[in-house]
Simulated assay, not measured.
Amino acid sequence: MIVRQRVVLRWAVNAGTALAAASLVLTASNARRIRTPDVDALPVAEPLSVLIPMRDEAANAPGCLRTVLAAIDRWPGPARVVVVDDESTDDTAEIVALVAANDSRLSLISGTPPPAGWLGKSWACHQAAHHVPGDGVLVFVDADVRVSPFAFTATVAALRAAGLAVLCPYPRQRADGPAERLIQPLLQWSWMSTLPLGIAERSSRPSLSAANGQFLAVDAETYHRAGGHASVADEVLEDIALLRAIKSVGGLGGVGAGAHLAQCRMYHGHREIRDGYRKSLWSAFGSSAGAVGVVTMLVLAYIIPAVAALTGSRIGLLGYAAGVASRAISASVTGGRAWPDALAHPLSIAGFAALTADSLQAHRRDRLRWKGRALAGTTPREREVRRG
């Protein structure tokens, strides 16, 4: 029995190290290939509509609007900003209205409650998109994002030059507290280390899709042809679902390097991280079985080799080093903090595993809520039943 256990453990360490090494190779390849918009590029003049859903964003609204309005000053064609106040209970609407009163480029829409079958953000984005022209480019921006003065010109120039329908320059993810520094870098590392970006950008396969709704530029005609946010009304991860819908009608796209174009602090502290990931991780991998499978692979690749390294395993040390290197490369490309944070990569994976388990349990018990709204009826089977 002891001999068999040792064989199994040795196999796990070897397999995990091989996975970590393969992931490192892919991360390094993506670092060389990732699309990076040029801040000096200027697109041709066409309509630009910047659409911002806001729900209880009084703290973020002034900073977001200030940077967005400054960025459209550089736009060579007609530009407008539309904010949808999604039934805020704070002073969001009043703050936006005050800014709009002094800038005719900004419009405020009072959002209506989401109809049956819609989640809040998709409904807010849908309302915003139907208040702007159907041509040109739509740029969706979250309220906690701060864009640079050349964010829109550089992004759209890259979008048009590459012939893409969607481009999401990934904002630099601000992570200021211990929990944020442990978990947030996994956002960009996840796709840097698992998705061949060059292939994914040109592939119509839904499985090869990575997007970020924090800052998402899309060709307006393709967006509407794909059904817009109505096609992803009940999707928790509506950004990735939107890219897949656009791929289904022939459009292509994906993520790019955007640390020089925008920054975002999604969550403040461990409570917001727990609540934020609880609402979405259950759906990130298609099913509960998919989530368990992904977490198992992550543990195999990044925790087991690290534990083995502590016992003197050279193979385990190699696997741990590969994970740390992959994380450091991802940070260098996406504007994150590489050192010493990358050294804690196994702890990050353990935290992610715990968050995934918490999300699956909350979903099973129908306890998913976000910004005061229940996220009910969001399993694939429930969506199929609703659609008849």
Rank of each mutant, 00 (worst) to 15 (best):
R172C: 09
G120M: 11
A143E: 00
P115M: 04
R364N: 02
D341N: 07
A328F: 00
V139R: 07
V218L: 06
M192D: 14
S283R: 10
A129K: 10
R244A: 04
R160C: 10
H345I: 00
S23D: 01
P171T: 13
G276F: 06
A22T: 09
A70K: 04
W123K: 01
I246F: 04
R74A: 12
R32E: 08
R181N: 05
I2G: 11
A18Q: 03
A101P: 07
A41G: 12
L243E: 07
L343T: 05
L186N: 08
G312W: 06
P76K: 06
S193W: 10
L26W: 01
H126R: 09
V132Q: 01
G323T: 04
T67I: 03
R369C: 05
I199A: 09
N30R: 05
G253K: 00
N60G: 05
R327G: 00
P346R: 11
V166D: 02
G213L: 09
P133S: 10
E382Q: 15
E87D: 11
R369D: 01
D239Q: 05
L19E: 14
A129E: 12
A309G: 05
S203P: 12
V81F: 06
G258Y: 07
R278D: 01
A22I: 02
G336R: 10
R381Q: 15
E94L: 10
V385E: 12
A101E: 14
V292M: 15
V333P: 00
D219S: 15
N102H: 09
D234K: 13
L243A: 04
V96W: 05
V249T: 13
A331K: 02
G117S: 06
S280P: 00
V299L: 15
D239K: 03
T112C: 00
T356N: 07
T194H: 13
L119D: 08
V324C: 03
R160F: 11
A344L: 15
V8T: 09
R386G: 02
R314C: 08
V132G: 01
Y223F: 15
A79R: 06
D234C: 14
D366N: 15
D38N: 13
G336C: 11
A338Y: 00
G198Q: 08
S248R: 12
F285Q: 13
A28W: 08
Y267D: 08
R35C: 10
G323P: 03
V50N: 07
L375G: 02
V84N: 02
R205D: 14
G250K: 03
M297P: 00
A291D: 08
